[in-house]
Design a protein around this nucleic acid. Sequence first.
DNA 1: GGTGCCCTGTGG
DNA 2: CCACAGGGCACC
Length: 275
Amino acid sequence: MPELPEVETVLRKVTPHIVGRTVRAAHISNPSVIAHPDPSTFLDSLIGRRFVSSSRRGKYLLFHLDSGGLLVLHLRMTGCLVATPRHHADIPHTHLVISLDDGVELRYSDCRRFGRFWLLSENESDSITGMNSLGLEPWDPGMDAMYLHDLMHTSRRSVKECLLDQHIVAGIGNIYSDEILHSSGILPFRKACSLTDDEFMTVASNIKDRLSFFLEKNDISDKDYLIGLGKDYRNTPYLKVYGKGGEPCPNGCGAVLIKTVVGQRGSVYCPRCQK
DNA sequence: GGTGCCCTGTGG
DNA sequence: CCACAGGGCACC
């Protein structure tokens, strides 16, 4: 479920509760969310370590350990990460609980179990998470019209498929690709190679603009984050097209939004505003 | 590049 | 009941 703005929100809400804290214990109740064949090595590398910082790359969360190791998490569709007080009420589908030295518990729940944890030891080259082949971050200064042009102008894929391709720009998912393309006035099924230079510029600008907008809208208090179990993303009141097929275009153009499938993903667009 | 698959829950 | 869900991988 979560796309970049949601993952960044998870990072911001969880980080203050874990940095500086040491892992006292960890319990895996479902090893399928641990990417390593042997979860006990995962636990061995984690227990006793201190969290020194955290960061994000695309939709991956990175937790840096004092050992020089790196705990990596991808939430995929339904992953939720929350820091709770000790003895907080059980959260359904909890697969990993990391207990910290101040009593806080870092809990991972994931209904569909698509999410994954990895643990990279210091100096271990990362050939397992997929992070090393990610494209630029949306707000990287190099993520501009020329960058998109270079990676997309010979592609026979649709522009939407390219926006969803994490090797091009990291962090865009199905909701925000639709929002970006509506704001850009570009049909999702347009071939990427058909975009003009002006359109590449518009898309580059709207990627930054829309993701910034939704990141800001996702701001949430610690209390409400815990109540919502980290999945109350608060973007829905502000979505213009996603999930709104059959409704009037929010631009007031008079057309009705169309729901279709592009690149195997549900997609909504305005047949009048998007060319 | 297409397709299936990993899973569970929800809505039509 | 089936279709679908905000992700990404392995496999042709």
